[in-house]
Simulated assay, not measured.
Amino acid sequence: MTSPVFEHPALTAAASSLASLRAAAGRIGAPDPVAALRHLDCAPPSISASAATVDSGALLVTSASAEFRAGVEHAETGGSAETFGIWADTVDGQYTAAARAAAETAALGARIASELDTLAVSTAAQVCELAAAAAASVTAVLAGDRSAEVVSTVSSTCTAVVRAISLKLASLSALAAELEPLTAPVVELS
């Protein structure tokens, strides 16, 4: 049986380490520890790359804003400079707000990628430790032993793995709350 592949390499390694526990769990009807890992799967490098793209976009908007401001200053020297200046200041403010929002979004994306990476790595280490502690009982169940002690150890280990993952998932709600403001445009460009 091949080990499941996850987006995050630490979770792929953990799934491989949990393979025997998963097989023992299947024999006694305990929760599947590898299936629980799926809920934490993530690809921090992809998130970081997206954040870097947004940051590059912010730099382009900042550059366009500077060019626009230079053009406005040049144009304000003739005709209806006052009306044009008010309109230009509004547009310039929108450029600035859009650039700031993009830079803040990029920084948030980079931080979230880092936090997800840390979460995946720490969870993988924690569940591997749990599985290692139950290795003797797992081996016994896989060899056909159905004594209460080994079955209980395997079952409680699977439950502990699921609980550990659930606790880590609960910590993601704070990250999700930080993403909420990004669902509405910061500025409407004229």
Rank of each mutant, 00 (worst) to 15 (best):
S152D: 12
G109V: 06
P33A: 01
S147A: 02
A19I: 15
T77R: 12
L18Y: 13
S190P: 13
L130G: 00
L130I: 09
V154S: 05
A14V: 00
A99H: 06
A13S: 05
L169Y: 00
S48M: 03
L119D: 14
V162N: 06
V151D: 02
L179D: 05
S46V: 01
A176R: 14
S56I: 02
L167G: 02
V91K: 04
L116W: 13
H8E: 13
A14K: 06
S3R: 08
K168C: 05
I86K: 15
L169H: 07
L182G: 02
A107W: 05
D41H: 09
A13C: 09
V121N: 10
P9M: 00
A13N: 11
L21A: 00
V150K: 00
V150Q: 00
G79R: 03
I112Q: 12
K168D: 06
A140D: 04
A120E: 00
A10H: 11
V161G: 01
S56Y: 14
L59K: 09
E104G: 00
A174T: 13
A120R: 00
V186M: 02
D117H: 02
P9C: 01
T96V: 10
S166N: 12
E82M: 12
Y95T: 10
P33N: 03
E76D: 09
G79P: 14
S3E: 10
T183L: 14
A66M: 03
L167C: 05
L18M: 06
P31S: 12
A132S: 13
E7N: 08
T157K: 01
L175M: 01
G79H: 08
F68E: 00
Q126A: 11
G29V: 03
A177I: 01
L179K: 13
R22N: 07
R111M: 08
L167I: 10
A10V: 11
T83F: 15
F84Q: 06
L59D: 15
S50R: 15
S173V: 09
V151K: 12
P4W: 07
L59P: 10
D89W: 02
I112F: 14
V187I: 14
V151Y: 15
A102R: 05
A102E: 03
S50D: 13
D55T: 03
E178M: 09
Q126Y: 09
L40M: 02
A103T: 01
A14E: 11
T12I: 12
S137D: 11
G57Q: 03
V121D: 06
G29I: 03
L108T: 07
H8Y: 11
E73N: 08
L182F: 03
A81R: 11
P31T: 06
G78W: 13
S155L: 04
A134C: 06
S171M: 11
V72E: 04
A75R: 02
V121E: 14
A110M: 15
P45R: 01
A70N: 06
L59V: 12
A49Q: 05
A15C: 07
A98K: 09
I165H: 08
S137V: 00
A88F: 01
V162T: 15
L182E: 08
A49G: 05
A64V: 12
A58C: 02
T83N: 04
A51F: 00
L172Y: 10
T118K: 12
